[in-house]
Design a protein around this nucleic acid. Sequence first.
DNA 1: CAGCTATATAGCTCCTGAGTTATGTTCGGC
DNA 2: GCCGAACATAACTCAGGAGCTATATAGCTG
Lengths: 115, 115
Amino acid sequence: MAVGSTFEVMAEPNRRVIVELLRERERTVGELVGALDVSQPAVSKHLRVLRSAGLVESRVDAQRRYYRVQALPLRELDAWLEPYRAMWTKSLDDLERHLDQTQGGKRAGRARKAR
Amino acid sequence: MAVGSTFEVMAEPNRRVIVELLRERERTVGELVGALDVSQPAVSKHLRVLRSAGLVESRVDAQRRYYRVQALPLRELDAWLEPYRAMWTKSLDDLERHLDQTQGGKRAGRARKAR
DNA sequence: CAGCTATATAGCTCCTGAGTTATGTTCGGC
DNA sequence: GCCGAACATAACTCAGGAGCTATATAGCTG
């Protein structure tokens, strides 16, 4: 529930891969195992962690379990990042101003700021 | 540099506290130690990790070192989250539609969607 | 220069967490 | 009703990382 747990859960590389795979479409445990280069129990363990963090849900079909992403908890990360957006925007603006000063008119037709 | 390292660095609770403290203003190591309930070497170690991830910078003043946030690496987290924004927006819309259906006109003057 | 302050580094301990193998459970097919 | 497929759980190992104490380094102060 806390932003901390979401951060910690998403810090694990294989879990991020799982979430990215499930973003495209729901998948069975077997499909994830095939994509991940770790054992099936390891994948089940990651799915357990992800489920208890509310980041995935599952649907049963016979012996198969289809997992899908539940993105809402990621919103907490987004909210946590909010105060920093202004800071990196400023950093980029400062960088740009610096480039404008040092390189002068060399880049007249250049594309405008990416935010 | 990779989004993975940024995730892992920010997963540590004390490091997140440090970054949040430095968001307000630059601080010395001693100030951070006073706020954190861990030893001074532990704080220095966290600062080292944060510095090598590009998340903080330091300025020397006599024996003191003032640390400040460098927010740019956090932008990678923001970018990573991007594809999921549409998903949680949809989840919230679905929830709202559901509430509208089940509770009908009970909440006529209610505040509008928060995004 | 002696001693104090502020911070970094070294060396160590300890616990957590990610991985493994082995086994349990559930379900469909024959 | 049995066997195999699909997944979860149990029990264990092992490495890394976060913490600590002790010590080194750098700079002010008197």
